[in-house]
């Protein structure tokens, strides 16, 4: 697309924003999941990603390396109003990808499918300049945060996920801080092309001026159709459920414990808690994934957890 927009810059910063239901109602009795109207937003971390992209673009622009920011959302038409808000905030273009299945409380395309759609959009934009993809790290619906990893994999570039601090450097370069285990931090120098994801607290999204807000109301959100941009159409990932199966809230399995036989109360409690019985020391085994899963289930069964007929294996 960049070649068809003359004057547009070689550098492209793509921000991925996810349209999520922030409040899902789960009926406690039936487990039916329902969304409320007007309840979808971009998450705080996605907003932070937009701000990081805008700041980076400004720094690179100021350094004489023209840069455009493009927001991409695989989401329903409802998201367009909020995409226009991002245009008011300073994003140069906003693209919405229409797919048969969008994120919602009841259907979830997989991260990989979303990533491949976003990569298809990125594909039309690469014009030889630097490419940076910025995502929020975790969305308000507690997604897996794995979309950026899939994007990096598909593009074949570096990734730095879950950043807690980002400083824009020379064109094509960022300095960032990432959390490590044990309260440690790691400073990174990231060179484009790269995919980064940022935490919500990295930056507060600016408040657009009144004039740009008004102007953005008549801006267009570009539309791509999942089928037409050649990426695989996301199918519903129904968490393994087939047709006609009902989703129900997760409840822990019942563990059957034999009645204690000790004559006195204290003895019965000691027996129930297993405090004095011999304890099998933990063991470490190295297995292939499906053997490992089976071993875990066998162990649970041995401990008395009932799987009933709907055993997951």
């Amino acid at each position: 697309m960049a070649e068809t927009s003359p004057g547009y810059a070689p550098n492209t910063i793509v921000v991925c924003v996810k349209w999520v239901a922030t409040h899902v109602h789960i009926d406690p009795l039936s487990g039916v999941v329902a969304e409320r109207s007007h309840d979808n937003q971009f998450s705080a971390s996605d907003h932070a990603a937009v701000e990081v992209a805008l700041r980076t673009a400004r720094a690179w622009n100021d350094a004489g390396s023209p840069t455009q920011v493009v927001a991409v959302c695989v989401g329903p038409v409802d998201s367009e109003d909020e995409l226009k808000v991002l245009i008011a905030d300073g994003v140069d273009r906003a693209i919405r990808v229409e797919a048969a299945t969008h994120y919602s409380a009841t259907s979830q395309p997989t991260s990989r499918q979303i990533a491949s759609l976003i990569c298809a959009v990125i594909g039309e934009m690469t014009s030889g300049g630097q490419l940076l993809v910025v995502c929020g790290d975790v969305s308000a619906d507690r997604g897996s945060g794995s979309v950026p990893a899939f994007i990096a994999h598909e593009i074949g570039c570096a990734q730095a996920l879950g950043l807690v601090e980002v400083h824009e450097g020379d064109p094509g370069v960022l300095r960032a801080m990432r959390r490590l285990d044990g309260g440690r931090r790691e400073e990174l120098v990231i060179e484009a092309p790269a995919v980064i994801s940022v935490e919500g607290a990295v930056a507060h999204l600016r408040r657009a001026s009144l004039q740009t807000t008004i102007a953005a109301r008549s801006a267009t959100v570009e539309l791509r159709n999942a089928r037409e941009i050649g990426a695989a159409e996301p199918a519903i990932a129904t968490s393994g459920l087939g047709d006609g199966m009902v989703m129900h809230p997760w409840r822990p399995r019942t563990r059957i414990v034999p009645a204690p036989v000790q004559p006195d109360a204290l003895g019965r409690i000691v027996e129930l808690t297993g405090a004095k019985s011999d304890r099998v020391p933990p063991r470490t085994v190295t297995l292939e994934p499906d053997e490992a899963a089976r071993a875990i289930l066998d162990q649970l069964a041995e401990w008395g957890y009932e799987w009933g007929q709907d055993s997951p294996i």
């Binding site: 922030t22 409040h23 937003q41 705080a44 308000a140 919500g200 607290a201 507060h204 999204l205 600016r206």
Partner: peptide, 8 residues
Amino acid sequence: MSATNSST
């Protein structure tokens, strides 16, 4: 702009 706090 602040972090969104949904009814918590």
